[in-house]
Amino acid sequence: MSESNNQNPQTILELTNVHTFYGKIEALKGISFSIQEGEIIALLGANGAGKSTSLKSIVGLTPPRNGRISFYGKDIRGMKPENLVEEGIIMVPEGRRIFPALTVMENLKMGAYQRNDKNGIEDDIEYIFTLFPILKSRHKQDGGTLSGGEQQMLAISRGLMGRPRLLLLDEPSLGLAPIIIRIIFDTIKKINIEQKTTILLVEQNANLALMVAHHAHIMTTGTIIHSGTAQEIMKDETVRKAYLG
């Protein structure tokens, strides 16, 4: 599935030896990986492996202490989250975090906070309603009244409203019913194919993530211990047994 994307690969994001600390605790012990344009990359691993921290380090919520993060060749380490959104790096945070008191429509508009192209925003809302028709029928409702799955759809949609060049998804399957998870992951794949959006996916549910991802990195305790294409990792019994369960 990844053949068409890999014909002319351009590295868009590159992490080199990134270290991030929470106080004295070293959460990322020098991780390095890169993402090609149009790919879906999965970061897998158990709790506390540093997957979410990697995402937060990229978007500047937990600025790394050293190392280099470059986006389209530009050093972005230490940049503020709002400036990174401008660059086109958008994160869908863990646990959905939609705005419960704003309506679905307003939530979507918040996603387009930095955009000024009114028509483009309208078009994107239209596109999102084709991705998740349920949101269309709920567009007048307050975000807080949606179910967990709908909230996750809204969170992803809100991220898309910023027209990301790189979309970071933090645990999109968290706490959702299997059938909803399926819809969400189908849509993730669809977004990647239709919009050519590069996606970095953090997931605990490895099998699910490997089904949509092109490449995957497996993390334990702040380091990447194994990398490969999704098929390789799927086939590699030892890796699967040792780290993915």
């Binding site: 919520l61 401008e86 975090r97 705005f99 419960p100 008191a101 704003l102 508009k109 809100r158």
Partner: peptide, 23 residues
């Protein structure tokens, strides 16, 4: 306005606001 929505959103969830690119 956009700013007003940002104020309301900030009242609710600051991290999500940052992820939306709100200063």
């Amino acid at each position: 306005s956009r700013l007003g929505r940002a104020w309301l959103a900030l009242r609710e969830d600051e991290v999500a606001c940052q992820a939306m690119g709100i200063n």
